[in-house]
Design a protein around this nucleic acid. Structure first.
Lengths: 251, 251
DNA sequence: CGTCATCTTGAGGAGTGTCAATAACTGTGG
DNA sequence: CCACAGTTATTGACACTCCTCAAGATGACG
């Protein structure tokens, strides 16, 4: 692979966790480095699958268009995330979504065969892949549950909290790498609903100005969502968040 | 393992696909056979994880309760499905959902360590697990998309169609192993909504009486959902269904 | 024939989508 | 620096869907 990507970043990829440096080197020999500009596409709905990708930096929006012209954003990928493994492992021949760079991005590109072969031969890689998929499954089940049980503002509040916790950001002020339109699409809501929801979030200790998010009253914000979320009481993300929020609020 | 479960069934488990008979034997030595009656629990929310399960027969409802007393049914497992792998692979120590037998069921029970070890050592098992998780991810992304883009009756129609296609049932008359209450919970809707939705489905060529489902006018039923579903045009399930529906309708 | 669980039907209301008008922001070129 | 266009976001009015509560109907089973 090219030598012009931050070695630190590559070394800490979740997919390579637990491996020796030599293992990592060997695996990464199959990769090609690609630099994307805003708007570039990595994959397009219906196109034949050629590659598996690991995001090194930037933001990649995944989206799908319905026949009647609407579209959804099942996920937004950031550094460390992967793209294409679901299709490849499912033995599907075409991508089922579009992948577009929202901001400048760097990705590692692997041929499909690389993933197929190493998932079979390389135990640790398979295990890390399993872990990635299990996490994704979990995250989706949360979203799915929220869609049924929560109001739009609650979904937004919970999404922001989980994002903050996952990315290990400062709860008092962090940047959300989403325009409001993107946030709306990600949560399956309308832009207008988001706009109105943000007003309500202010009543519950969450202030959003532009792309800057700030949790002012942490307890209020938690209470707003916890009772409707079956995972709030025994879920690592929420615990992690609660700890971080309270720790940093004491400073 | 016990010798009193149908060998055919075990031999065709998706998780053991592609393996030699001897491999299967070896792997299954770690298993214990359990017989469940209606209402028995395999797992309970918050309880420590002790086992990984493969369903051999029967129906297992997965459910979660929220602090405010509502509950959701993220999935309903049938023969061939697995339980617990997400938690185990995620290194989570407690189940995040309840698993209750809806009708008499037979399951294979494996210790947690069995899964951890073999996922690492046994390439084919890891690959099959990856395939299972990838399929699940895909199924969830469909549901999630539907929740945002479809009306309740459309979600119901699509769910019934996919169920029929997946289980390879006769589209003209098949049994849905769900009470209406369970169906409602599975789709994150209210029982009343289901009830009213079924009336509307009759206008679109789908008749449901009790637990018996029948697609009377296939084209009408397809049209009712296809325009709102981004996967309808290039998704194996839908294609499979369309074929089967049309083939059998010509007889 | 009652009892319990399951389902249906009705009326009302909360929440979100939709459409339309306006406002704020971003970048470009004069 | 300002005018301009294009994108992105806010706000209002309205309709529609689904949830909620309540009353009844149906079905299974002792």
């Amino acid at each position: 692979m090219g030598k012009n990507v931050s070695p630190d970043l590559v070394r800490n990829l979740p997919l390579l966790a637990g491996m020796t440096e030599q293992d990592k080197e060997t695996l990464l020999e199959g990769a090609r480095l690609r630099h994307l500009m805003r708007g570039d596409r990595l994959a397009a709905q219906g196109k034949t699958i050629t590659s598996f990708y690991i995001i090194c930096s930037g933001v990649i929006q995944l989206s799908r268009a319905t026949p009647d012209g609407r579209d959804v954003t099942p996920d937004v990928l950031i550094a460390g995330d992967t793209l294409g493994e679901t299709e490849i492992l499912n033995a599907v021949s075409t991508y089922k979504l579009n992948a577009t760079a929202v901001k400048e991005a760097i990705v590692l590109e692997f041929p499909v065969a690389w993933l197929r072969k190493n998932a079979l031969c390389h135990g640790l890689l398979a295990q890390n892949l399993l872990c990635v998929l299990a996490k994704r499954t979990h995250a989706m089940s949360i979203l799915l549950e929220h869609k049924s049980l929560m109001s739009a503002p609650q979904q937004m509040a919970c999404f922001l909290q989980l994002f903050c916790a996952h990315q290990n950001l400062d709860p008092h002020e962090f940047e959300l790498p989403y325009t409001k339109t993107l946030l709306a699409s990600r949560l399956g809501l309308e832009l207008e609903t988001i706009s109105r929801g943000l007003a309500k979030l202010r009543e519950h200790g969450i202030t959003v100005t532009g792309t800057a998010v700030s949790f002012c009253d942490i307890d209020k914000a938690e209470n707003y969502v916890c009772n409707s979320c079956s995972l709030s009481k025994n879920c690592r993300e929420h615990e992690l968040l609660r700890e971080r929020l309270h720790n940093t609020s004491q400073k």
